[in-house]
Design a protein around this nucleic acid. Structure first.
Lengths: 181, 181
DNA sequence: TGTACATCAGTGAACGCGCGTTCACTGATGTAC
DNA sequence: TGTACATCAGTGAACGCGCGTTCACTGATGTAC
């Protein structure tokens, strides 16, 4: 069955935007470019999305849903603590490496008012999960530290994405900071 | 004497852009808006700047030169180590709090290709200075950790700028991470 | 089975808008003789 | 001191461009009777 959100043309539009964002950055994801890349008429865009904001939100949700699914897969049933934190971070970073949109979402998208709110919400959720791990580990300021872990992780994700492969020195440097010696 | 770079009209144009960026974000800093805000004709812009990129670079340089001057003032003659790192970070964050452009530069500007290169260079320089402190402190991966400190500091700077005041819990959380207990 | 109508994805020309940039011009100030 | 010319910041109309969005339309498919 073809529901509203997985209609093939809608998917084609999202795919086109993903490729454009990965190649030339989020600013190149204009409706003109999207439909041209997808070999569709301009009007078709508005059959599947109410406006550009709607489209960007969909793009962002797809990205984060996939990443979070892989994080959830790895932390399922794990109790809070050092090991879970490490697993979460690694799963997140591995997920980002496989996502064409990583750079566009984590870097360019911050200035897109359309997505800003979405990003803040996701970051907050991630921060809360990490906070629980840190609390269990006996960290002094779990909430504040969790926020910093989110910032560092995003930075590493972009660095790895640009490098095209994992950067273990950065990952271990972060884990060393967060792990009491 | 009025040299090329401190010509009053040029300064007025930069001031106008600063106010616009602070109020509505970097995307609102169009040449139309700038000259309108400064009560000047559009052509005047091109008397003082070759193009928009030139203008943005000037805006960015002004920002970072002021911040770095205050960091340099505080670390002058200090030997590398924990105390200097702490002073540097605090001076940087205090400087950012007093700068209207903090949010625009540290957040929005990442997606502006014009400034990207400039930002990367400044971050690298900061990273190297911090790396020296960390090395002296016996940190295992000084270079990688320094990069993470830069990322955390930028995050805190934006958070404080949005809050409108210092956020000591965030600052101490970061210093605790970096300082061996 | 045939006819009439409804639904809906897809089309593409046209819209107004703000953008960055150009350029021929103005007018005040400085310089030469 | 007066005249001629050079310099240069400032002007604003005009340019082409790509943007997001609209809308009357097409044509295929589904539904009713």
């Amino acid at each position: 069955m073809t529901t509203a959100t997985d209609h093939p043309t809608r998917v084609a539009l999202l795919d086109a935007g993903t490729q454009l964002a990965a190649r030339d950055g989020l600013h190149s994801v204009s409706i003109n470019n999207i439909v041209h890349h997808a070999n569709l008429a301009k009007g078709t865009f508005y059959v599947h999305f109410t406006d550009r904001t709607d489209y960007l939100v969909a793009l962002h949700r797809g990205f984060h849903d996939r990443i979070w699914a892989s994080v959830a897969r790895v932390t399922e049933g794990q109790e809070a603590g050092r090991a879970r934190l490490q697993r979460s971070v690694n799963a997140y970073l591995d997920g980002c490496l496989g996502e064409p949109l990583t750079r566009a979402i984590l870097f360019d998208a911050r200035s897109e008012p359309a997505i800003r709110n979405e990003i803040d919400l996701r970051n907050l959720a991630a921060s809360k999960a990490i906070s629980r791990d840190l609390k269990t580990m006996g960290m002094t300021s779990p909430a504040e530290t969790a926020r910093l872990v989110v910032a560092m992780t995003a930075d590493i994700a972009v660095a790895e994405h640009e490098a095209g492969h994992k950067l273990p020195p950065l990952r271990t440097a972060m884990l060393r900071l967060v792990t009491p010696r």
